[in-house]
Design a protein around this nucleic acid. Structure first.
Lengths: 114, 114
DNA sequence: GGAGAATATTCCTGTAAAGGAATATTTACA
DNA sequence: TGTAAATATTCCTTTACAGGAATATTCTCC
């Protein structure tokens, strides 16, 4: 109703709102990685790495490709596109102005209702 | 080390990663609002609205201006700018390509190490 | 100064989720 | 076929945090 955004996907944000998971995502920004590589670079135990990757995967943030013993994880573009357009829907706020205007309108309205 | 981003502020994401709080933020996108207005529009009890606003405020997402009895909350631009540039740091991913390239490089490297 | 709004704070309780440790699963390879 | 590597899964425990209900605080106005 208030724009094209069906609302940012809560799940995406929840998935990212965890220190180790965000680190994983930032690691993967530079290219696909193996579970073991991720665990090592972040100083995580393998099971925790796998669990976090599962969460990321369940939320469509990450993609997996099996290759023999290894599982290679990489970022999926979609969530980032979505996040991008969500953030863009706050452009007016980001550019400031508008605050003052609205502020002013609010005060007008308040006086009227008194 | 890996780019200009000092790392997205975890706190920002955690603060947003809660259903009611994201609804508050989206409400405020259209302009400043009073605690009562927010509570009413979202069907929240006043105390919970206040609590969520406190979290948002503590994390610099929201700004408060006292006006008599009322407290008027509005969005602060900074976190959204930060989020925006963070997301932008994933441009390569968002634009796809790169996956295939990196993929290919990975495989090369794997063969070498065998 | 007392009453009643609007908002904040406190205390309590339930629950989701993260980490640890152990174990299961799959694959390569000798 | 047996062993070892890489990964996933399960079970347990602990902790953070959201909601409910009650109460405190601050302001206006008579």
């Amino acid at each position: 109703m208030s724009g094209m955004n069906p609302g940012m996907d809560m799940a995406t944000l929840s998935a990212l709102a965890e220190p180790n998971r965000i680190k994983i995502v930032e690691l993967l920004r530079d290219g696909p990685l193996t579970v073991g590589e991720i665990a090592e670079q972040l100083g995580l135990r393998q099971p925790q790495a796998s669990k976090h990757l599962k969460v990321l995967s369940d939320n469509g943030i990450v993609d997996m490709k099996a290759e023999a013993n290894r599982r290679i994880y990489k970022l999926r573009p979609e969530p980032f596109q979505a996040l991008d357009s969500w953030v863009k829907s706050f452009q007016r706020v980001m550019e400031e102005r508008f605050d003052n205007l609205e502020d002013y309108l609010r005060e007008l309205q308040n006086k009227e209702n008194t």
